[in-house]
Amino acid sequence: MKVDFVFKAFTAIFAMIVILFLLSAFTETVLPGNFYRISITDLPGPAVNGTTTVMVPLPANATGEPVIPEGAFSGDRVVGWQAEIRETPYGKMLAFTTTGEYAPDISVSFEVVQTEDELQRLPLHQRPTNLTAWEMKREPRLLVPVLATPDNMSVAEFSRVSSGTYTSVVFLDGFVPSPEDAAVVTFSLDYRGVGGTKRLMRENTWTTMVNTAVVSTESGFVPVPADYRVIAGGIGFL
């Protein structure tokens, strides 16, 4: 009787191991990464013989350090614009500049996937802090600068809530819309910091979205609402 019980217990454990192995074999592994889509439309005409500038927030951790290497943003990926990271009174922002007679809409996506080796430290130019990739994928991320949070929470405290709306900022300069022009500039910013999935375990995903319209006659820094949400991790196949 005892032998029969032991045999059944062993069979059940072996079956569970086989099931978990099969689930692991057929479950997709998703590497941790950062994905940022920027769309800015209906920009007014630029000033003649001047520099036109648009700036948007950057994906960063709770201490304000960018989680995408700065070099990934620089260059002329957007037709008619040059992109670079720029220091501002509120912290670092992504700046698009042009000296042309026409300011085309801005539409661009940035994707950076972290290293597959969880124990390997990323090269210095690819990491914001001295963290392993394993630690980084558990690190809350959002779009900064953060000008204000609900109930005056610190950014670190706010980044740990499941969802909420905080105040970020965009910047416009060098545009000359006509006084009667009542048009608006539409900012659509979509950031996803994906913790990844491995061995059936899915890490958190942090998202921040800015969908707002700014009057085309605005100039300088303009506060905008940013919607923050944490998608909780768990078993990967659920």
Rank of each mutant, 00 (worst) to 15 (best):
K2W: 08
D4C: 00
V6R: 10
A9P: 01
A9Q: 09
F10H: 08
A12H: 04
I13V: 15
F14Y: 10
A15D: 00
M16W: 00
V18C: 14
V18F: 14
V18H: 04
L20H: 04
F21Q: 11
S24G: 15
T27Y: 09
V30W: 02
L31R: 10
N34A: 11
I38M: 01
D42Q: 14
L43Q: 12
P44K: 03
P44V: 02
G45W: 01
N49F: 12
N49V: 00
G50Y: 05
T51L: 13
M55L: 11
V56P: 12
N61V: 00
G64N: 06
E65G: 00
I68T: 05
P69R: 05
E70P: 00
E70K: 09
A72C: 10
R77F: 10
V78Q: 13
V79K: 05
V79I: 14
W81N: 06
Q82A: 13
E84V: 00
I85Y: 07
R86N: 01
E87P: 00
Y90P: 02
G91S: 14
T97D: 07
E101M: 12
A103H: 09
A103T: 05
I106K: 06
I106Q: 05
S109C: 08
S109P: 14
Q114E: 11
E116W: 09
E118L: 07
E118H: 02
Q120I: 00
R121L: 11
R121S: 07
L124R: 08
H125V: 14
H125D: 10
Q126S: 10
P128D: 00
N130F: 14
L131D: 13
T132E: 09
L143F: 01
V144E: 07
L147K: 01
A148F: 11
A148N: 15
D151Y: 13
N152E: 12
M153Y: 02
A156R: 12
F158D: 07
S159C: 03
R160D: 12
V161E: 08
V161W: 02
S162L: 15
S162N: 12
G164C: 07
G164M: 05
T167I: 09
S168F: 04
S168V: 06
S168I: 04
S168L: 03
L172T: 01
F175Q: 01
F175I: 05
P177H: 07
A182E: 13
A183T: 13
F187Q: 02
D190C: 08
D190P: 09
R192H: 09
G193Y: 04
G193N: 02
G195D: 02
G196C: 05
G196F: 02
K198E: 14
E203H: 14
N204W: 11
T205P: 01
T205K: 04
M209H: 13
N211G: 09
N211M: 08
V214M: 01
S216L: 07
T217P: 05
E218D: 06
S219I: 09
P223T: 05
V224R: 02
A226D: 04
R229V: 11
I231T: 10
I231L: 15
G233L: 10
G234F: 14
I235D: 04
F237S: 09
F237E: 06
L238P: 01
